[in-house]
Design a protein around this nucleic acid. Structure first.
Length: 485
RNA sequence: GGCCCCGUCGUCUAGCGGCCUAGGACUCUGGCUUCUCAAGCCAGCUACGAGGGUUCGAAUCCCUUCGGGGCUACCA
């Protein structure tokens, strides 16, 4: 019988979720959806010095925004909650105590300073650094003696001789000789749990069947398996592991704030679409094959399998993300495009949000949809339609103030004044016959001058459509004032 | 240092012994189209880290080597 798949995304929010976290979340989610399984969202906040409530809230918000809906976790609950490790402390304490009783773990009274000193000595002696087992076989009397000195004990797991072998779904069989897996700490001196304890206990008690996570956790796997053993879990009930390759920065190693922004919030502000981020991230370390690249979230869930996940690290490429974002923007319906553009227009103060403004934006969006890569470009593109204080941009001034341009503008003015029905077709017809045919000018020269006068820039959406949207009165005003420059 | 992972165009990747004189995408370059900018279309550049094997045949299997990364915490 095949167990129903249960996958978890379990970040430790010590900062804003970054690109690597999201890629992991995406794969976890896609795998759960592909298999018809359950997607669990768990917060690993055992390091209270680094995890804050704000980061936790931000993580929840980010996942929501990306559309990675979880079936169990914060805010939605679930049968195996709570889903914040800080609320499960008693569970970990219970197991730590049990391990002590079973002699799988022991109290260790070595202080950080002592350990540090011994590690240094090991390094100097060219021995693999790690806990030397000094407190492994303390007698009751010795323990009592340490306690009476006021020393606090950590709970340390006893690593038996031998090796741990497991099959990673992405990398194949991997084994670790316990000689290189020293006894590790399960709980701090104050009794609070460490990652290795909490993650293993939770994966088992939440009945997680598949652990897809970053490859930085690969070498902690034997420790986790050791905890399963101490918990008395049967081998067939261990989760299946799959360690995802890293997502790295542009040139060198780790993704950092310097090369390619890492915080998802930044991408959101820049006008990247969640579906574009997901599509792009899905391609980092995974490929659907068949030369397919542009896929929807739904297709991702249909196509995603761990078998097709790569084992080698991937570099993050902003250019490609932008290309995909552009594709996704072009694929938007007008309604969607409008809805998503409005917040950017408002925050850029291009519009206040009146019905009239929104109607005008709605008419203007089609002509810029294929011209932008990010939503935050919308305000600059449409600003000329709304600005109260219109002025030709500095760099283009000289291109409309020369004699030839003035001729063009003068002629345009008279032609345009005569137009009865102000549409882009009639505007184009009027300007073509007068400027191109009669004056014999090159279109790019003639229309270039008009463009600067009307939009204020050498770059704009299509001229005649823009003029239609602006309206006859405004166009004539702007051309007149350009003549005065 | 030790252990572990990884290695195809600049980047993401396809490839799982013959279909590969290595395919696609992004980037870049040139062209077409054109009212600017885009979009679209066409063309071009550029890769199996190196060395040994195995095999009739290797990007694909094995070994070595070099390079990159992770871990080596009372972080995760």
């Amino acid at each position: 019988m095949v167990k129903a798949v249960r996958v978890r995304f379990a970040p430790s929010p010590t900062g804003d979720l970054h690109v690597g976290n999201i890629r992991t979340a995406l794969f976890d989610w896609a795998y759960a959806r592909h298999t018809g399984g359950t997607f669990i969202f768990r917060i690993e906040d055992t390091d209270t010095t680094r995890v804050t409530d704000e980061y936790i809230a931000a993580a929840i918000d980010t996942l929501r925004w990306l559309g990675l809906q979880w079936d169990e976790g914060p805010e939605v609950g679930g049968e195996y909650g709570p889903y914040l490790q800080s609320q499960r402390l008693d569970i970990y304490a219970h197991w730590a105590q049990k391990f002590i009783e079973q002699k799988d773990a022991y109290y260790c009274f070595c202080t950080s300073e002592e350990l540090e000193a011994r590690r240094e000595a090991q390094k100097a002696a060219n021995v693999a650094p790690g806990y030397d087992g000094q407190c492994r076989d303390l007698s009751e009397e010795q323990i009592a003696a340490f306690r009476s000195e006021g020393r606090q004990a950590v709970v340390r797991m006893r690593m038996p001789d031998g090796e741990t072998t497991f099959v990673d779904q992405i990398r194949g069989e991997i084994s670790f000789d316990h000689k290189f897996v020293p006894d590790f700490v399960l709980a701090r001196g104050d009794g609070s749990p460490l990652y290795t304890l909490a993650v293993a206990v939770d994966d088992i008690s939440m009945k997680v069947t598949h652990v897809l996570r970053g490859e930085d956790l690969l070498s902690s796997t034997p420790r986790q398996i050791r905890v399963y053993q101490a918990m008395g879990v049967k081998e067939e009930d261990y989760p299946t592991f799959a360690h995802l390759p890293f997502v790295m920065g542009q040139d060198n190693a780790k993704l950092s704030k310097r090369n390619g922004e890492v915080s998802i919030a930044w991408y959101r502000d820049k006008g990247f679409l969640p579906e574009a981020i997901c599509n792009y991230l899905a391609l980092l370390g995974w490929s659907p094959g068949d030369d397919v690249e542009n896929i929807t979230m739904k297709q991702l869930t249909e196509l995603f399998t761990v078998e097709r996940v790569n084992s080698s690290p991937a570099r993050f490429d902003m250019k490609k993300l932008e290309a995909i974002n552009g594709d996704k923007i072009r694929a938007l319906t007008l309604d969607e495009f409008l809805e998503r553009s409005l917040p950017f227009l408002k925050s850029a103060k291009v519009i206040a949000g009146s019905q009239d403004e929104i109607a005008l934006v709605n008419s203007a969006l089609p002509i810029i949809q294929e011209r932008i890569t990010r939503l935050d470009e919308v305000p600059a593109m449409l600003k000329f339609l709304f600005t109260k204080s219109f002025a030709v941009e500095e760099a283009s001034l000289s291109k409309v103030s020369d004699a030839a341009s003035k001729d063009v503008l003068r002629r345009s003015l008279t032609e345009l004044e005569g137009i009865e029905e102000w549409t882009h077709d009639s505007i184009e017809a009027a300007l073509r016959s007068s400027l191109i045919e009669e004056l014999g000018l090159k279109p790019r020269i003639a229309f270039g001058s008009v463009r600067i006068a009307v939009t204020g820039s050498t770059i704009s959406p299509p001229l005649f459509e823009s003029m239609e949207l602006l309206g006859k009165t405004v166009c004539l005003e702007r051309i007149s004032s350009a003549l005065a420059l």
